[in-house]
C-alpha cells in the first residue's frame, strides 16, 4: 500500500470576488522512499496541494472534496490535535523563501528545540545534541555556534539548510518541499539538491518536490506530475515525461526550462498567459494557448493512460501516443 494516496482532491478558495478552484481534482499516489516532482507555472495550485496535505489551508480556503490517505488514515476531516501530531513529526514541509521561513526574532536553537518538544519530552542536552547532529547532516559548519545565532546572521542558502534540518528533526515519512531551492543561486541549489537526495535515500523518506523548473526535477524525482490550473495534466516516470511528453503543455515547459537556456536570458515562453483561476476556459484549461486544440477540447478531457504508468489529460497527445481524440 502506498504511503500517501490522494484521490480527487479539491481545494477551493471562497473569496469575495468568487470561487478560486486552486486544486480541482488532483489524484496521485506516493510510496515510501519515492520522490515525486510536481511541476507547473505560478498559480497552478502546487503550494495549495502541499498545504492541503499538511492540513494548513486557511479560510477562505477549504477542502471541498476528495481524500488524502496517509499511512492508512484519511487526513481530510481529521481532528486538529491528531493532525497536529502528524505535522512536523511524520509529515514535514519546507517552504520556498528561506528569508521568510524562520522567525526573525527567535534564535535558531529556540526554533529547533520547540519543533522537537512539540512532539515529546526532550531534555535540554538531548535536544541540543539532536539539533547539532541534524545541522551537521545538512552541511552547516560549527553547529554549536550556529544554534545561538539569529536567522539574519545566515545567508539564504544556510537558512534553507536550517529549515531543512528542522524538517528532518523527527525523521518524517514524508517531506513536502515547496520550491525550496528556487530562491537560491545555482551552485547552492545544486549542493542542496544533492544533499537532500542523499538524506531522503538514507532514511527511505518519501518526498514531494514542487518546482517551476522541470530540469531540477529531472535529476531528482522518480516520477513527475505536471499541474495546470489546479489539475494534473500529465504524470509518469521522470524519464517518460521528460523524454516523451504527451501533453502539449509539458512539451512547452520543456522548451522553456530555465536550465536549458543561458542564465539570465529570457526564456522561450509558452504562448499566452496562465489562465486566471477565477475564470478558467471551459473544457481543457490549456485550450487558449494550445497549438493542437480542436473542437473536441471544449469538453474537459479525462485522464487517460496511453501507456501504462504514464497518465495524460489531452485529446491530442504528442509523441507517438495514439491520437484518440479525433476518433472519440
Amino acid at each position: 500500500m502506498s504511503l500517501l494516496s490522494i484521490e480527487n482532491l479539491k481545494t477551493h478558495f471562497f473569496t469575495k470576488a468568487g470561487v478560486v478552484k486552486s486544486v480541482d481534482g488532483v489524484s496521485f499516489d506516493l510510496d515510501r522512499g519515492e520522490i515525486l516532482g510536481i511541476v507547473g507555472e505560478s498559480g497552478s495550485g502546487k503550494s495549495v496541494t502541499g498545504f492541503s496535505i499538511m492540513g494548513l489551508v486557511d479560510p477562505p480556503g477549504r477542502l471541498v472534496e476528495g481524500s488524502i490517505r496517509f499511512d492508512g488514515q484519511d487526513l481530510v476531516g481529521m481532528a486538529e490535535p491528531v493532525m497536529r501530531d502528524l505535522r512536523g513529526r511524520r509529515i514535514a514541509m519546507i517552504f520556498q523563501d528561506p528569508m521568510m521561513t524562520l522567525n526573525p526574532v527567535l534564535r535558531v536553537d529556540t526554533q529547533m528545540i520547540e519543533a522537537l518538544r512539540a512532539h515529546g519530552r526532550w531534555s535540554d542536552d538531548a535536544a541540543r545534541q539532536r539539533c547539532r547532529d541534524v545541522l551537521g547532516q545538512v552541511g552547516i559548519p560549527s553547529p554549536e555556534e550556529r544554534l545561538k545565532s539569529y536567522p539574519h546572521q545566515f545567508s539564504g542558502g544556510m537558512r534553507q539548510r536550517v529549515a531543512i534540518a528542522i524538517a528532518l528533526l523527527h525523521e518524517p515519512d514524508l517531506i513536502i518541499a515547496d520550491e525550496p531551492t528556487t530562491a537560491l543561486d545555482v551552485t547552492i541549489q545544486a549542493q542542496i539538491l544533492f544533499e537532500i537526495q542523499k538524506l531522503v535515500a538514507e532514511n527511505n523518506t518519501a518526498m514531494i518536490w514542487v518546482t517551476h523548473d522541470l530540469a531540477v526535477v529531472a535529476g531528482l524525482a522518480d516520477r513527475v506530475a505536471v499541474m495546470y490550473a489546479g489539475r494534473i495534466v500529465e504524470m509518469g516516470t521522470t524519464e517518460e515525461v521528460v523524454n516523451r511528453p504527451f501533453h502539449p503543455y509539458t512539451s512547452g515547459l520543456i522548451g522553456s526550462a530555465p536550465s536549458r537556456n543561458p542564465r539570465g536570458a529570457r526564456l522561450t515562453q509558452i504562448r499566452g498567459m496562465a489562465p486566471l483561476p477565477m475564470n478558467l476556459p471551459t473544457g481543457c484549461a490549456f485550450r487558449p494557448r494550445c497549438d493542437r486544440a480542436t473542437e473536441a477540447c471544449i469538453i474537459e478531457p479525462d485522464a487517460t493512460t496511453p501507456e501504462s504508468e504514464h497518465l495524460v489529460r489531452c485529446y491530442h497527445p504528442l509523441s507517438g501516443a495514439s491520437d484518440w481524440g479525433t476518433t472519440a
Binding site: 498545504f51 499538511m54 494548513l56 497536529r84 501530531d85 502528524l86 505535522r87 512536523g88 513529526r89 514535514a92 514541509m93 517552504f95 520556498q96 523563501d97 521568510m100 521561513t101 524562520l102 522567525n103 526573525p104 526554533q111 520547540e114 519543533a115 512539540a118 512532539h119 529549515a163 528542522i166
Partner: peptide
Amino acid sequence: LDYVKFARAKGLR
C-alpha cells in the same frame, strides 16, 4: 507570513 505557517507546520500548538 511564512514563518508563522512554518511554525504551525512544525506541529506547534
